[in-house]
Design a protein around this nucleic acid. Structure first.
Lengths: 214, 214
DNA sequence: TAAAAATCTTGTCAGCGTAAAGATTGAACG
DNA sequence: CGTTCAATCTTTACGCTGACAAGATTTTTA
């Protein structure tokens, strides 16, 4: 496991070490482009991201990405899919590790959701923004799986409820925390800071959390 | 009042009737551009709106808008400001005209909010999207005034509460209905339609409304 | 080993925002 | 009334963008 096929490793190693010399075939351009895109998104912001800058950071020509993604939005779409998968598992893990006997058993999940949005603001905007086509099959199933995971936690939290109520509760939770996340990520709560004892963003968020359980 | 200065009116009338003949000075280009922008936004969608198309629809050159707005985002910013003013007054009127003795006195306001977002989806995205600078003074004060108006209704609804609670309730209401509006407007609830008896979007929205009062 | 496929580059195109400079008009003022 | 000046709009041009077509290079297949 540590070495594997020696010949192959040597080849790979050669490739790695000759990073100075530019090679025609990149080897793992798809992954490299997604990494570069993710970095550029958070560095420049959602609006200033361009495919050409992304290709430049990956060290390839502006047309190279076309061989791995349909177009610029195809690249962002792949990022968003991974974002939903990451968010989904984070929320589930948080729920499973949080105490179930508190007054508001969802607050830990909500905090984790908000943390994700604040840690990856540009990615979060891509995931829910109108740049991507919401009807894209992969994106649709990824966001659906995320919701289903939330639904699962909700159903374990309210064992007696029927499907309609569980769906409604899940939707209520999602839209509520999504709304706060968007307002925070878009800077739309800035005017509230300094008002009536809300000295910073955190105090606003905890007020939001404490005012009620979903 | 019906006629005013005859000379001036005649002049204006001449201008109107000679619409075939293109004139160098438009007369009310700022308003015309905002109208054209608002139309194009809803026709083409938030992402495909361009300043050049907007100028073309208004019948002027691509550089003409620069004399009335700082840049493309300046035009959208003005639209967003008017959007917040319109939304603010709609919500207040709805609250004042809705019965106060129901179980959930906010539901009428929430419905009106959602109606605004669905009637002007592209404008709504502009108002809350990251294309505009959230720290723009005019935009900031317009959205703040909108929130203050909501706060006013909330304070009349819960007379006993202190400022902190009223702020938290208002924020909770806003983020909740904003989250639902965004999800609806961005088409992010499509995958839920047809699931567990939710035959359309309206059934989802009413389930959201009925699951609890804010 | 030759053909085929995959991968990346170069060259090109229309469309975009916007800045600079010129043309036209209306308003202010003698 | 005529002149000057500011406001308004056009023309021209620049760099940047996404994307397409065609060619170069490498890897895979057969």
């Amino acid at each position: 496991m540590s070495h594997g096929n020696v010949k192959y490793m040597a080849k790979k190693s050669d490739k790695k070490k000759s990073a100075v010399k530019k090679e025609y075939h990149h080897g793992d351009l798809k992954r490299t482009l997604m990494l570069a895109a993710s970095e550029l998104l958070e560095e420049l912001g959602y609006e200033k991201f361009t495919l050409r800058k992304c290709a430049a950071r990956a060290g390839v020509s502006p047309s190279a990405p076309a061989h791995h993604f349909k177009d610029a939005n195809g690249l962002l779409n792949s990022l968003a899919v991974e974002g939903f998968q990451s968010l989904s598992s984070k929320l589930r893990v948080t729920f499973l590790n949080s105490p179930k006997d508190t007054a508001n058993p969802c607050s830990a999940v909500a905090v984790e959701y908000l943390r994700f949005a604040k840690n990856n603001p540009a990615l979060y905007k891509v995931m829910f923004g109108s740049r991507l086509n919401a009807d894209n099959p992969e994106l649709k199933s990824a966001s659906e799986a995320c919701f289903e995971n939330l639904y699962l936690s909700v159903s374990e939290m309210f064992p007696g409820k029927n499907k309609e109520d569980l769906n409604a509760i899940s939707l209520r939770m999602w839209s509520s925390v999504h709304g706060l996340s968007m307002l925070v990520v878009e800077g739309r709560l800035n005017f509230l800071i300094g008002k009536d004892g809300f000295k910073n963003l955190s105090s606003l968020e905890s007020a939001w959390l404490n005012i009620q359980g979903f």
